[in-house]
């Protein structure tokens, strides 16, 4: 495998593809990003690659044939793309049907079911498909703008018991933002209710105990009297 990759890189040595996506520092060590990179995307093999045949579960050959369609995880697809071995295609979450749904009204889409790492995968795809990068970027922005109001309103009405129900259609990044907004609201509520909370109240047990004691005392007094 090492030898064949050297050959292909020699051929195209003039223009180097560097689909190393916007890797800001915090994302290098981020577990979420590493997990996200295992999402799959369909690819089409663009040239025969020797000894990578095991990637295609349906073929028995040693070499990966040209024009095979595969689904590969993003981290693998990225490296093969850099070596000109594959061409990336849009996964289902970004197909034209989904795009139309998003453009119509993005706030009703259940992103968690469709693609829980929607925005991050989208950004990775922007680097892998430079021809369509602008469209993907516009799509992500339109989707987010449509859903922002919903996230904002949900975060303002912070009832911590209902969080799971309310965020059931959010993607992972939207959830993170929702929690930030909710945290502020809970903080505000706690501050507002502080005056009630700081008063030391007699526990119910004690009050009842006292009442019962008083009753018992009255009874004994009346019985003796």
């Amino acid at each position: 495998m090492h030898r064949s990759l050297n050959q292909s890189s020699l051929e195209e040595s003039r223009i180097r593809r560097s689909a190393r996506t916007v890797c800001e520092f915090e994302e290098y060590f981020s577990c979420d990003e590493i997990l996200m990179l295992s999402e799959r995307t369909p690819v089409v093999v663009s040239k025969e690659v020797s000894r990578l045949g095991f990637l295609d579960p349906s073929s028995d050959e040693e070499n990966l044939k040209k024009n095979t369609k595969l689904e590969l995880p993003l981290w693998l697809a990225k490296h093969l793309y850099n070596m000109y071995c594959v061409d990336i295609q849009l996964p289902e979450a970004f197909s034209s049907y989904s795009v139309n749904v998003m453009r119509a009204d993005s706030s009703i889409v259940d992103l968690k079911r469709l693609q829980p790492n929607y925005y991050q995968v989208g950004r990775q795809l922007m680097a892998l498909l430079p021809a369509e990068a602008q469209q993907i970027s516009d799509l992500l922005v339109t989707t987010y703008k449509g859903r922002f109001r919903k996230i904002f309103d949900c975060a303002q009405n912070a009832d911590i018991k209902e969080t799971d129900k309310v965020t059931s259609s959010f993607d992972n990044e939207e959830r993170a933002m929702f929690f930030e907004g909710q945290k502020v609201q809970l903080d505000l509520q706690r501050w507002r209710d502080r005056s009630q909370r700081n008063k030391i109240n007699t526990a119910d047990l004690v009050v009842n105990h006292r009442k019962r004691k008083r009753e018992a005392l009255r009874e004994t007094n009346s019985s003796t009297a």
């Binding site: 996506t21 925005y119 680097a127 430079p130 990068a133 970027s137 992500l140 922005v141 987010y144 703008k145």
Partner: peptide, 11 residues
Amino acid sequence: RFVSRLKKNPE
């Protein structure tokens, strides 16, 4: 910030 990051084109 999220929106501006989404708009940033990697190339």
